[in-house]
Design a protein around this nucleic acid. Structure first.
Lengths: 232, 232
DNA sequence: AACAATATTTAACAATAGTTAACGAGGAAT
DNA sequence: ATTCCTCGTTAACTATTGTTAAATATTGTT
């Protein structure tokens, strides 16, 4: 979940009418919507930011279709919910949407209410463990990203901005790999040797914060990245 | 996930034709299905067992409708995935299904394939959430891939990433040949002479870890590959 | 048996990661 | 304006992980 308590939605829809109507409806419902009108713009928007909570992708789009885009994103993020929108109700298409790692699939025309409901259903799953306002549970710890606060029982640590950003990225991929590349691009904005060393220093700091709870482990995957594991 | 490797599904459907067809299809797909023909029977089945992985509930059922049943279950279990089936595509109904805590909603008639896909999508989420992808038994050993941990009685060894990946590949082909080519391509990404030598070094390391239990043998098939054998 | 190909093992080496501390830019306090 | 403080970066050193090399052993073929 991103810093505000709004759900941050990345919406890709090339039909300008539908795009704008959707954006306005979702904003009315209290969400924060970024609208892209083609697949490439959407790809760029996604990979530059760390804090989208949900993707809504039209399948048929200029430059890059929704399935291709979703497949790319699923390579680096298995968690973020993806809902596809499509005009044609071709059976094969639906199956492809799921195969590529989508969470739901809606055929136009659909009611806004149903979209809202399906969004909630899919978000409820990820929010069961990420509190609703930027609060993450990490074993016995509680991490308030908004306040940059990491709490363990009575103790609490104030994190720096970079520490908090990195920990948030790890939390939103809990039990899953975050590649060095992803982290560097999303948090440092570039991926070079020195930024990489800098990240290692932050990883060490976060480990130190987290070593009260033995069920929590921030582990390295050699040559690839890190994953924050919580044994259950 | 329950103890077996099958997905345990509780299916409630009062139409006997559809019920039986669904059950048979899902069993064909390797799942373990319990079929109930009314809401009360389903409620009893659910509350008597602990290890269902997924509920598929018809909405219109004798004695207790699917929504009421789901609402009851959601009081005690917020996690278990619920998919509703319904004949009528009334908008209000769909909304009610989600309000009551459903994860997906399918309108009859639907294709079996789409049901399968939607099941997978919903199950994938809970797997990701719990980080429970792989624990293998190897004779007296227990291998937790997620934690890169190999346990033998009281002892436990922390494996490196490569060791864990290779052991996982061997485990998922227990008692079966894994060709050098397969292993090299899957784990090293390419199949050349030096990667091959490197793999041999890892095989040696894994053998060393596994030599407490005489029933376990990581054997070579000359010129072809390796087999992880467990005698019983 | 002699030979060639493949596999095992140990050690040296290279690349990646972990840790601690020094450094420097920028903001806040004096 | 000067000093102090915080934070991110860089540096230096150590540890871990994975690859290459080299010496030995095993297997299959002629």
């Amino acid at each position: 979940m991103n810093s505000s308590n709004k759900t941050k939605i990345l919406l890709a829809e090339d039909d300008p009418n539908l795009g704008i109507v959707l954006k306005e409806y979702l904003e009315l419902k209290g969400h924060d919507v970024t609208l892209c009108t083609d697949g490439e713009a959407c790809s760029i928007a996604y990979f530059e930011s760390t804090d989208f909570d949900l993707l809504i992708l039209d399948v048929m789009m200029p430059k890059k279709d929704g399935f291709t885009l979703a497949a790319e994103i699923r390579k680096t993020d298995k968690r973020i919910p993806i809902i596809f929108l499509t005009a044609k109700s071709m059976n094969k298409d639906i199956l492809k949407g799921f195969k590529v790692g989508g969470d739901d699939y809606m055929t136009k025309p659909f009611s806004m209410e149903e979209l809202q409901m399906r969004m909630n259903a899919v978000l409820r799953r990820v929010q069961i463990q990420t509190g609703t306002n930027g609060t993450y549970k990490i074993g016995e710890y509680e991490f308030e990203y908004d306040q940059q606060l990491l709490k363990y029982k009575e103790d609490q640590n104030k994190l720096t901005t970079k520490e908090a950003e990195l920990l948030k990225l790890l939390c939103s991929n809990l039990n899953q790999l975050v590649t060095r590349e992803t982290a560097l691009n999303k948090i440092w904005g570039e991926d070079d040797y020195f930024k990489g060393r800098s990240m290692d220093v932050f990883i060490a700091k976060i480990r130190k914060y987290l070593n009260n709870d033995p069920a929590v482990e921030l582990m390295n995957v050699h040559g690839t990245g890190f994953k924050l594991m919580v044994k259950s």
